[in-house]
Nucleic acid binder design. Structure first.
Lengths: 365, 365
DNA sequence: CTGAAAGCGCTTACAG
DNA sequence: CTGAAAGCGCTTACAG
């Protein structure tokens, strides 16, 4: 039985917890008092030079006499000066920050997809390496889309990278019309709105089905992703085309890229065609769900039914049996993908990039 | 064989891709020309009132005559005016944004941990619901820690939520001395630096071991997480204490919370004590790794060896057999956890919160 | 209830 | 190479 009544214990903390054994840069703030940080003006006064000179030193301009630079640096260190970001942004008209905008459906369907984490993490790393800050924006509802537009229009960021999971999403058009540089992680349903980087989904799915065909599998089914997602569409199309080329008929069940949907779709597939001997799941998460259903139904994998996934997430190595799948370069090489995207953003380029996929053969097929 | 030579196809995009069928709010920007957005001044001129009045309307102040409000709103809509964020931040001395700071080791050990995604996602949602923006900051290296400190000192955010995975991390102390309000997702090694919310790791791990004991298991091993992480420490301590209470000896292997480390630790455990009949893995990811090793070694679960995990991530439902585990409220109720954290942040409270855990019994033990 | 003025903390031509 | 001045786009006392 699951215990739903939840205790919540308050653990009082000893009062007056100040920094323990860490020498602060400047005077430690008095309890509860929000200290006003030193300004450029204060540094200039301390150093006995003009604000202009301090500014130049701070920004590393070469046209500063060494002696001035030195005295300014001393004052900066002494006062613990850090330039105010808002003031800088205001005058320079740039923010040095890029938004990562994730189209996050309220239903949270893709919530456990490791792809999300990989992309966000890789983007953060690359952006940080490039000296940029990242604003993370989740945009699910109409309301939040409006907020995103306002946010961009307010000049909070210099550009944005869209991670859209839903092809029918109006977000791309909203972003495109802000006039800011925008790129997309994954191809969009509406072409031409912005450049993108994407997997070669068509090629990858074709390889998956071909592998099954090469094994002599006769009745090859597929579990598709949600059809409002571009990647799902392409993978399904490739499956259909490959079967058609060999005169076979398609056996399709619909999932939504989650494990549970894969399990359910597999159940339906088994009902529809008890004779099927292979399944191509449009992502690994659904393949994992399908494996569970097959296990429960007493079908052996790969003897009775072969299973191929797509993405090659880490979990694919730990299924029983280990999963044969298509390696997605956007997952496997998330850093590289993001770097490409940031290049597109910087260049203002309109050229998109498609990354080649490869099949990874393990034991499930 | 893995194909390492990677093609990369350039897909040229048709030139001149403008917004398709979406009526922009204002005039569409000319190709390549970065339009200067209208300012408060422009709105005031258009409406024939003072800037003060426009500002009041924009900020929803009640002391504005209805007619003025109306005419201002008309001008705002007509010009597509959105207040400049930097200017606002500068004058109000607040940013309306909260930083989520993730202590992200360069090694990327925890890279695939679904906990990361859950926390970040939940935090983003709650923050957005509260009308706040979120700055995502990854802090792994010394260098990046310095950058974080600068970033906070620059006044870019009003507060920060730390998601630290590493107890020996100097980051918390760095954050604490900025003087900004900070809270921690998870207890820190150094107490008193900031309030936190955490799982009842001790209680949870005790329940896990007790369950194994209740089953009459005799030789109960554990796979610990990295000991510089607070949660790993606590779970290991609970295991030790529970065994000690029954006069049993501890059998410990060290992992780092990843699947692969769980698989390796299990191998070592099997070497060390081939007779063991139960394993408590300090998280589900390592339990998944352990299951693979046990399968490869021909041990049946749970007949030969019982396995219990910790966290109850979604994948725990899909292992073979399904994993008995301890439900972590920080994962299961990520939204609530984050809400608590944000309350702490807002209140400036120094009270921490510990959330109770419960065991979820499935088939692996 | 409204407006003129000061000022938030910077950067950047412009003289010198 | 340096400094005085203007100005980025807002908000906020302060008079009226």
């Amino acid at each position: 039985m699951r215990n739903t009544a939840v205790r919540l214990d308050k653990v009082p903390e000893p009062p007056g917890c100040s920094v323990l054994g860490n020498a602060p840069l400047s005077d430690p703030p008095a309890e509860g008092v929000r200290v006003r940080r030193p300004t450029l003006h204060a540094v200039a006064a301390r150093a006995g030079v003009s604000k202009s000179s301090v500014s130049r030193v701070i920004n590393g301009e070469p046209t500063v006499a060494p002696e001035i630079r030195q005295i300014v640096m001393a004052a900066v260190t002494e006062l613990g000066y850090v330039p105010n970001g808002a003031a800088r942004n205001l005058v320079t008209q740039k923010t040095n920050t890029i938004a990562i905008i994730v189209s996050d459906p309220p239903a949270g369907l893709v919530s456990d997809d490791p792809m999300f984490a990989m992309v966000v993490r890789a983007a953060s790393r690359e952006l940080e390496a490039a000296g940029k800050q990242v604003a993370l924006v989740l945009a699910g509802s109409d309301e939040s889309r409006r907020r995103v537009e306002q946010y961009l229009a307010a000049g909070h960021v210099d550009g944005a990278m869209l991670v859209s999971m839903d092809g029918s999403d109006p977000l791309p058009a909203v972003l495109a019309r802000t006039g800011l540089p925008v790129v997309s992680h994954g191809r969009l349903a509406t072409p031409g709105l912005m450049p993108y980087v994407d997997n070669d989904n068509l090629g990858g799915a074709t390889k998956a089905v071909q592998h099954l065909l090469d094994q002599g599998r006769q009745r090859i089914a597929t579990i598709s992703g949600p059809l409002d997602m571009q990647a799902a569409q392409e993978r399904l199309n490739a499956y259909r085309q490959a079967l058609k080329d060999t005169g076979r008929r398609s056996i399709v069940a619909l999932g939504d890229f989650t494990r549970i949907s894969g399990a359910e779709a597999m159940r339906q597939l088994l009902d529809d065609d008890p004779q099927l001997d292979a399944v191509f799941a449009a992502n690994d998460l659904m393949a994992i769900g399908a494996l569970r259903t097959l296990r429960e139904a007493g079908r052996r994998v790969p003897e009775d039914v072969a299973v191929v996934g797509f993405d090659d997430i880490e979990a694919a190595l730990y299924t029983a049996p280990p999963l044969t799948t298509v390696r997605s370069p956007m997952g496997e090489q998330a850093a590289r993908t993001v770097r490409l995207l940031l290049e597109l953003l910087a260049n203002g380029s309109a050229d998109s990039v498609i990354l080649p996929t490869e099949i990874v053969i393990r034991e499930s097929a």
